[in-house]
């Protein structure tokens, strides 16, 4: 079990809300979507976030794996918050709370016992208490943050266009001018790619244990 894969952290938070306030919540979501990106400007500016998604699950519509699974009678509807981001849990929650406290309150306002995003530690406890750990979390590009991927995509496209714009009869000087301009146009997409900063000493310990376990598992094979 780990919420961490490469540079990414996966967060799921399931919070209860009364069925009639769920209606209000849906209305808020509708307004947010209709006025997009007005209410989400702060969220979109927080570049550590890959994506964030809020879903209302009505108390009668929780999925069942199979028809034979008995239906549950739930007191509350729930709001499922899913997000992938770069950095540690604390860094993410801190940034959320510092930068867009009003936006967070708008999304969670109707949820049971939501304390508001400021003061911070009550909000910490609320999220931690309602967080569901990832059973499995996979990252195809563990060395890349969302910003790295976006930069790489932009750079790749621009490099192709640049290559297409070159002609055989171009002088060296003209090529140099065009290349300089290409570099200038892409100067914000040229950061190095590398390992993730250490998320926490706990995560470091888990990584260490995994290495030890792998070495231990390999040993009998080598002996055989």
């Amino acid at each position: 079990m780990s919420n961490v894969a490469g540079k990414a952290y996966g967060m799921n938070v399931l919070t209860p809300l009364r069925w009639w306030t769920a209606l209000w919540q849906k209305l808020i979501f509708w307004v947010v979507v209709k006025t997009f990106p007005y209410f989400l400007k702060g969220l979109l500016t927080l570049s550590l976030i890959h994506y964030a998604r809020w879903t209302i699950i009505n108390r009668w519509s929780f999925p069942r794996l199979d028809k034979t699974q008995p239906k549950e009678t739930l007191t509350y509807s729930y709001m499922l918050f899913e997000s992938n981001f770069n950095g540690s849990w604390d860094q993410y929650i801190d940034s959320f709370s510092f930068a867009i406290p009003g936006g967070l309150d708008m999304f969670w306002r109707w949820n049971i016992k939501y304390p508001k995003s400021i003061p911070l530690h009550d909000f910490y406890h609320y999220i931690r208490f309602n967080q569901i750990e990832c059973d499995h979390y996979y990252n195809a590009y563990p060395l890349a943050s969302a910003n790295d991927v976006k930069s790489a995509k932009r750079l790749t496209g621009n490099l192709r266009s640049f290559a297409d714009s070159l002609t055989d009869n171009m002088t060296d000087e003209a090529f140099m001018d065009a290349y300089r301009q290409f570099l200038a146009d892409n100067q914000h997409a040229l950061g190095s790619m590398g390992d993730s900063p250490l998320m926490s000493t706990s995560h470091q310990l888990v990584q260490h244990h995994k290495q030890v376990n792998t070495a231990h598992e390999k040993q009998p094979e080598e002996e055989a």
């Binding site: 570049s47 790295d148 930069s151 950061g191």
Partner: peptide, 29 residues
């Protein structure tokens, strides 16, 4: 440097650089 959209670039003066090609600083224009 993720917050600055500069990937894994580090501070020139006090960063833990190691003399590799990717240990770099961009002076924007």
């Amino acid at each position: 440097s993720n917050d600055f959209h500069l990937g894994n670039d580090k501070d020139v003066l006090i960063g833990s650089n190691n003399g590799r090609l990717t240990d770099k600083h961009i002076i924007q224009t």
